[in-house]
Amino acid sequence: MSYEKDPRVDQYIDALPPWQQDICRQVRHLVHAADPAVEETIKRTVQPYFVLQGNVCALLAAKDHVNVFLYDGGITPDPHNIITAGHGNKTGRMISYHQGEPINQEALVEMFRAIIANNRAGGWRRLKAGSDG
């Protein structure tokens, strides 16, 4: 699959250890597989973000893992239990991948597609506000 890459995202990924590069490249490919209209950008000076009518996810490499931040307001179902942190977070949740851990690709693409659908429906803030009524 080909998609438009932001060279700044390449720069971020290329500076990481090989195992973190692999995780980031897999996540990058999967978010684009979820919807070819996803765009890449850099926010917060260096952090790769993937956006489509709002934030979908962001990458942040830490010393011993890679965090994938999901911007879903906690409303996207997680039937495969891939969320590792932020279960009670009001704006987003997170999946941490450590060296050697496999990525449940189908579950992650499913989650990305749900977040994108929510973004297209007005975003999680609007959807949450409508359900509180």
Rank of each mutant, 00 (worst) to 15 (best):
A85N: 12
H98N: 10
G88C: 05
G123F: 03
V38L: 10
Q105A: 09
A15C: 12
Y71I: 07
E40T: 14
K63L: 09
A15Q: 13
S2F: 10
P18V: 05
A34W: 06
G123N: 00
R126I: 05
H98S: 09
H87R: 03
I83R: 00
V46S: 13
Q20F: 03
K90T: 07
M111N: 10
G86D: 06
D6K: 10
L16M: 09
A37D: 08
A129T: 04
D22L: 03
P48E: 09
L16S: 06
L59V: 12
G73L: 01
Q11S: 13
S96I: 07
Y97H: 06
I95L: 04
R113G: 02
M1A: 12
V27R: 05
T84E: 00
L70K: 11
H98L: 06
H65E: 04
A107T: 02
V46T: 15
L70W: 11
Q53E: 10
R28S: 02
W124P: 01
R8N: 09
E101K: 09
A107E: 04
K128N: 03
N119F: 03
R25W: 04
V109Q: 05
N89K: 01
G130A: 12
S96T: 14
M111I: 12
A61H: 06
F69V: 13
Y71W: 14
D10P: 13
M1F: 09
D78K: 07
E110T: 08
A34K: 11
Q26G: 02
N67Q: 08
T91D: 15
T45A: 11
A58G: 15
A129C: 00
Q26V: 07
V56E: 09
M111T: 15
V9T: 11
A129W: 00
D35E: 15
P48M: 13
A85M: 07
K5A: 15
T84D: 02
L70N: 11
P36Y: 02
E4N: 12
D64C: 05
R93H: 03
D6Q: 14
N89Q: 04
G74R: 00
K90I: 05
Y3C: 07
Q26F: 01
I13W: 07
R125Y: 03
P79H: 02
P77D: 13
H98Y: 11
V109F: 08
K43F: 10
M111L: 14
Q20T: 00
E110R: 13
S96H: 15
V46D: 11
V68P: 08
V31N: 01
G133R: 01
K43T: 09
Q47R: 13
P17H: 08
D64G: 11
I42L: 15
P17K: 13
R125V: 01
P36V: 13
F50C: 08
F50E: 05
I116H: 04
D35I: 10
L108T: 00
A58M: 13
V27G: 07
G92H: 04
L16P: 06
Q99A: 05
